[in-house]
Amino acid sequence: MVSNNRLMNSISSFFRQVIRYRTFLLMIMIPFIYIIVFSYIPMGGLVLAFKDYKYRLGIFGSPWIGLKNFSYFFISGAAGRVVRNTLLYNLAFIVIGMIIEVFFAIILSEIRGKYFKKLTQSMMLLPFFISWVVASSILYSILSYEYGLLNNVLSEPVNVYANPALWPFILVFLRIWKSSGYGCVIYLANITSIDSQVYEAADIDGANIWQKIVYITLQHLRPTMVIMFLLAMGNMFRGDFGMFYQTIKNNGILLPYTDIIDTFVFRALLSSSDVGMSAASGLLQSVLCFLTVVTANFIVTKIDPEYALF
């Protein structure tokens, strides 16, 4: 009886709170419903990875088949290939990208010519603004076997679109081309926040510019670099679908070197309509992503709680 009363009390106080904060609740109602529909309901749909999806029967009516979707994904060798590619590409993007971004941030911060600095920064940011469709069109005009600019310059024509081993280099280069202008902004902002007195003191001590870069600027940037590196590592298993899909299209010759989890999931779903395998590879990706993000965030929290995601 007593516990029943307490329950009633807490329920009524809950409703009183709902009424009291109704405006706030209404204000976040639509975003809340949005993420429930577009983020949480699809999570439930992950059961598809363990089902033999039949369009007629829908997600919940389709029969369970245990781990069959996974076994095919692993036995066919696709799993190893796409996970390896995703991992290696991301690693290259993160490490090489960061070196280049920090490099240009330092140069931009040291350069005195105001207009030159503004102009070059604008030029470097431009590729970030275009879509991967346009970027792929540009890439084609340079690499195309028949008409490409590259083969016009080279004496011996190379058929880049039939040579998979070249693509890791092309894609890393493309990535740097498209996003390092954007990436260096955060480091540049960080350098600008260094107290100029530190540099003045170094000047008096007779430090040259290289010493100042190594002992002051880089030291100051180090925490940001570590954090950025860890945050990027958290997304190790999430590939840039737009980039890979638009540049490679469905060129089968290139796939061994360029197929990543995201493109694999997409092809399995829409080209070969293998919903089960698509869901299985997607589930694998989601779980790997979750584990890496949580681990990365745990380490970030240890280093500097300011930057933690949650």
């Binding site: 598809l48 779903l269 997607g282 989601s286 995601l309």
Partner: peptide, 17 residues
């Protein structure tokens, strides 16, 4: 809200939904 940044259902269930 945060949790959706950490874990998601991926393309397949989303597309079918």
């Amino acid at each position: 809200f945060y949790f959706t940044m950490l874990f998601n259902g991926g393309l397949t269930p989303y597309y079918i939904l």
